[in-house]
Amino acid sequence: MLQIENLSVDFRVDSGWISSVTDVSFTLGPRASLGIVGESGSGKSVTALSVLRLHAARNTRMRGRIMFDGQDLLTLPERRMREIRGRDIAMIFQDPMHSLNPVLTIGDQIGETLRIHQKLDAAAAQKAAIGLLDMVRIPDAARRVTDYPHQLSGGMRQRVMIAMAIACRPRLLIADEPTTALDVTVQAQILDLLRDLREEIGMSVILISHDLGLVAEFAERVLVMYAGELVEEAPSLTMFARPAHPYSEGLLKAIPSADEDVGRLYAIPGRIPDPGRRPPGCNFAPRCPLVQPACTAAPPPLATMEPGHLIRCPVRLAAMETTG
């Protein structure tokens, strides 16, 4: 359904263009769930925003192809793109407060999407809005529909954002750190809601997060991004049980556990290179425990380790092959 081929995104800065996302490819079938994990600056959000073409056109350069239902979203005129946004592909963000208009009731805001895409009249839109609030498990929906955003808690606001996103029953929902701003107990509620809605509506969901545990619980497959590149792609259980790329491995080891006392944490030394100052070879080489001379010479390719499991690390790949 969604097929991203060699997507690269550059941004304009004072001194010229810097590359944010480099050569990212992946596919997503209908009714599938995919997680994208990375630290800040990894390019995970940029990749997702590219699917909806939400970058300011003047300062962005995108290459590659984003095929959705057989058409390339990157070449579509803006007018067609507007039809797709919200109707076929919807998105929710980290901060529900800043994404809601404080002077409109939540019913008006949910109804707006329906009035744009499905040409409903005001009364019908209001009725549909109540139905959607029910769907996102907001109790007493008929009364809440006239509330303003400031009357709702953070978790309720995120539910409203989700209601707006699913109003047109999209086929793809992109959730960018949807629970980061929420409390721990509310985060679990929202995650469960997204999982239920995915089945009820039959949509695909891309979940973007810095939290590997969260992504692994939610998604069937996980992509790990580092410094603008895809470094590993695997089914989420595989990713959690035996991550192959040294970065994914380090990331997992660096997360403290609530289930056991670990003593000293593993810490990946150094930090992510700034865009525009990435090393010539493998981006992770300066921090990598497995680094070989070849790693710093040329960027390594993304290669298949086993069916469905891709890594961008020839050193690990070679080690795997020799051990069987």
Binding site: A267, P269, G270, R271, P273, D274, R277
Partner: peptide, 12 residues
């Protein structure tokens, strides 16, 4: 131990 002296930040 692992908080190795970090390289100078590559910033202006």
């Amino acid at each position: 131990t692992d908080a190795t002296t970090l390289p100078a930040a590559a910033m202006p």
